[in-house]
Design a binder for these strands. Structure first.
Lengths: 191, 191
DNA sequence: GGCGTCATGTCAGCTGCTGACATCACTGTA
DNA sequence: TACAGTGATGTCAGCAGCTGACATGACGCC
């Protein structure tokens, strides 16, 4: 007879996603999530810094893929390094992850508080990529622009990847979106 | 003898910025801000949806400048429309606004919660610009990419504008950053 | 002179979140 | 076998953010 069931963290995450999907983020209390997982509110806050974080924990690896991609890419211009990072990060989003990503995104898109957290995480990703580019000798402003552009490509590609009916892999979509970005920015100014 | 002093909203905003600068965002309670402004906590929440919003209210006009810039620009490619929007929006940031923007940004940069709100506002700006571009006949993905790129340019330029010792106008900085973006995305080595 | 309006105040209450301390199965060791 | 230490969890009290319901009172209008 064990005192605690294992996997408390995972149980809390699963319980949270399920409850949020059923009742919305604001309509779910932390005590409720914890009870669903067979734990108490206090324990929830030992695993997650706040109520929103339960949907975002574990993205450190995701960020690391981007940064490693930049560090390991062969010498190239800034956007080439970013392209390498984008390619490397797609391993995080295997096909079997798509349904889960969809469910999670539905919950996030329904709550501004969760959108804020998602944006903060992506902003942190851009900052990390900027540091990686700086480390490869890129000047500050080009580094920031390349990193922000890379994140923009990722966001648009990811949104397409989880769109209903979409079947292409994330890596294929990303390549198409990156090409589209080059075309768009290449346009001549008018006025 | 009047029952209430006028300008409750502005008094609350000024009190909040002053307290946040002095004690930090988390170190300041809403009751404290309200008391500083000669009001009660309940009244604070009648003017601002939450504690963070007191630093962000009134940016509707700012967003409108961008959207109007896109709507009124002469026909051009997507990035040309975005460039027009960027130019139009700089009127919002006149020289006399620079010290205030700096003080406000110091407070925001010191608190992740405030950064989240700022990112949400910028995300809303990108969404509005995307809609404006769609209205001008731009396809969804190019519209999103051009809008996100425009916001990235604005962010980098604004950050430079409020940097210590910087004296160029925002519009000049923005033009330089936009040019830099074209170079970076074009695949030129930088740094 | 009375009456409605409306910005503000008062009060009670929920929820997110935290610090301090208790519990108790499990583990290693004498 | 006894027993102290460890560590995940529970209990409890409390603060701060935020909200709904209702009260107040100066002002303008008829």
């Amino acid at each position: 007879m064990v005192r605690w069931q294992p996997g408390a963290r995972e149980r809390l995450q699963a319980a949270a996603l399920e409850r949020f999907a059923a009742q919305g983020f604001e309509g779910t209390t932390v005590a409720e999530i914890a009870a669903t997982a067979g734990l108490t509110e206090r324990t929830f806050f030992r695993y997650f810094a706040d109520k929103r974080e339960v949907l975002f924990a574990g993205q450190d690896e995701f960020e690391r893929l981007f940064v490693d991609g930049i560090a390991r890419a062969p010498d190239a211009d800034p956007m080439g390094l970013v392209a390498a990072a984008l390619e490397g990060a797609t391993t995080f989003f295997a096909e079997e992850r798509r349904p889960w990503s969809r469910a999670r995104q539905v919950v996030i898109d329904a709550d501004p508080g969760l959108q804020e957290r998602e944006l903060l995480k992506l902003s942190g990703l851009a900052a990390a990529m900027t540091r990686g580019l700086r480390h490869r000798g890129v000047d500050p402003i080009p580094a920031a622009l390349a990193a922000e552009s890379g994140v923009a490509v990722f966001r648009v590609a990811f949104g397409t990847w989880i769109a209903e009916g979409e079947e292409r892999s994330l890596i294929d979509i990303q390549r198409a979106v990156l090409a589209e970005l080059r075309t768009v920015v290449d346009g001549q100014p008018v006025g």
